[in-house]
Design a protein around this nucleic acid. Structure first.
Length: 413
DNA sequence: TCTAGGACCA
């Protein structure tokens, strides 16, 4: 890149705004050069709407969404790609409400000024549908679907996939299916989206039906790792243990897909929920990647359902190892020890939490104190061990008296 | 010379 840049500088073409914009765009594609891209952008004598947009997209690509929005606010004029750049940047960085509010502004502006050239296009709509999907805004999603229909924007598969995803995530499975069925040229993503919709809502068998249909009628499509996440997730939510094992094997043996953490997470969840802990642990041991908090969390959930306290203790310890600052896991362990009557261990965990400042995790101190009192209360109703409770509660700073005092009075009377 | 969809636990 630097060599090309040097050549451009030597040739004298570096004075043209088009060339300068291309340079800004190229540098902004690497997070280490984003500052340099901004420097080039600031030094440009004639910035046009394309240069502004290139810089904004650079910021959104490296996750500096604040800089992107602030630059967007300063733009002297905006075209559809510049609106799209900032809206897409918001959805990609998880700022869904901001994306929707920008879209509303764009719509209002287009209507108020009758500027046909800033009317939302396919790109805008696809991004905003994704924001609707992720925030569950079904009504807005439906309005946008109407806009798509009135303006004949729905011809490509990007659009129908975004609609399927939006309806599916918002719980309108019938509408998702309708849009899916009307999609003439179904891409792999179309099939994956529909499978995931059914999986998400626990319609395991419907998800499997879509997969089987894809294998029979899908043109030029071969299942990929996303397809199998959907399928395994469908088995998880549908309690389909046998099918889960079957698809995991199919993925690795028939399709040669190396399982990712997501696939392991689903499989272990399926086995854990079914109480098949030996098999679940065998899968964990055979993993080529380090199990993450999802894997241990799934296993813990299964342990809770089936009352497998030993393994639960092990899983929670693993969770704390992964994220020691997260007070929630420690609270779980303390509660677990409480349930088992292991008070010394319970206290030890709380001490550790305090050292890690985990009590500052929102909500944790109250939940913990509440449970502490409840546990003592339920463990020994005749001796509320008032002094001990006082000592522990006294050690916790910044707590509202109301939160522990009322149950305490209750157990004395 | 700028903009584009889909995935795991609780």
């Amino acid at each position: 890149m630097k060599l090309v840049h040097a050549q451009i500088a030597k040739s004298g073409f570096g004075q043209y705004p088009v060339v300068q914009t291309a340079l800004v765009d190229s540098y902004s594609r690497s997070s280490s050069d984003i500052g340099f891209a901004r420097q080039l952008f600031d030094e440009m004598s004639e910035k046009n709407v394309v240069s502004w947009t290139a810089m904004i997209s650079g910021y959104t690509r490296v996750g500096q969404i604040g800089n992107a929005i602030s630059l967007f606010d300063q733009m002297p004029e905006r075209d559809v790609p510049s609106w799209n750049a900032v809206i897409a940047g918001c959805t990609q960085n998880g700022l869904f409400s901001e994306a929707i509010s920008l879209f509303r502004k764009m719509m209002l502006l287009a209507q108020a000024t009758q500027h046909r050239h800033i009317r939302p296009n396919q790109v805008t709509v696809v991004c905003v549908l994704s924001a609707c999907a992720n925030t569950g805004m079904l009504q807005l999603g439906k309005c946008i679907h109407g806009y798509v229909y009135r303006n004949s924007l729905g011809s490509d598969s990007f659009m129908s996939n975004a609609l399927v995803d939006m309806y599916g995530k918002c719980g309108s499975l019938r509408e998702a299916r309708r849009v899916f069925d009307m999609t003439l040229k179904k891409s792999l993503t179309s099939w994956n989206s529909m499978i995931n919709c059914f999986a998400l809502h626990g319609h395991g068998r419907s998800a499997i039906c879509i997969f089987e249909e894809m294998m029979q009628h899908g043109e030029d499509v071969r299942p990929d790792e996303v397809t199998f996440v959907g399928l395994l997730n469908a088995c998880t939510h549908g309690g389909l243990v046998e099918k889960g094992r079957y698809y995991f094997l199919m993925m690795t043996q028939n399709y040669g897909i190396e399982p990712q953490i997501e696939h392991y997470g689903c499989l272990i969840d399926i086995l854990g929920r079914a109480g098949k802990f030996e098999e679940a642990l065998e899968v964990v041991r055979g993993m080529k990647i380090e199990p993450d908090e999802v894997v241990w969390g799934s296993l813990l959930n299964g342990c809770k359902v089936h009352g497998h306290t030993d393994l639960a203790e092990f899983a929670v310890k693993k969770l704390i190892e992964i994220d020691p600052k997260n007070g929630g896991y420690g609270i779980m362990l303390a509660n677990l020890y409480g349930e088992l009557g292991k008070w010394d261990e319970s206290r030890k965990v709380r001490k550790m939490l305090k050292e890690h400042n985990a009590y500052k995790t929102p909500g944790c101190s109250w939940i913990e104190v509440d449970n502490e009192v409840n546990q003592f209360y339920s463990a020994d109703k005749t001796h509320p061990r008032s002094e001990e409770i006082y000592k522990i509660l006294g050690a916790l700073s910044g707590l509202s008296l109301r939160f522990w005092y009322s149950p305490f009075i209750d157990c004395n009377t």
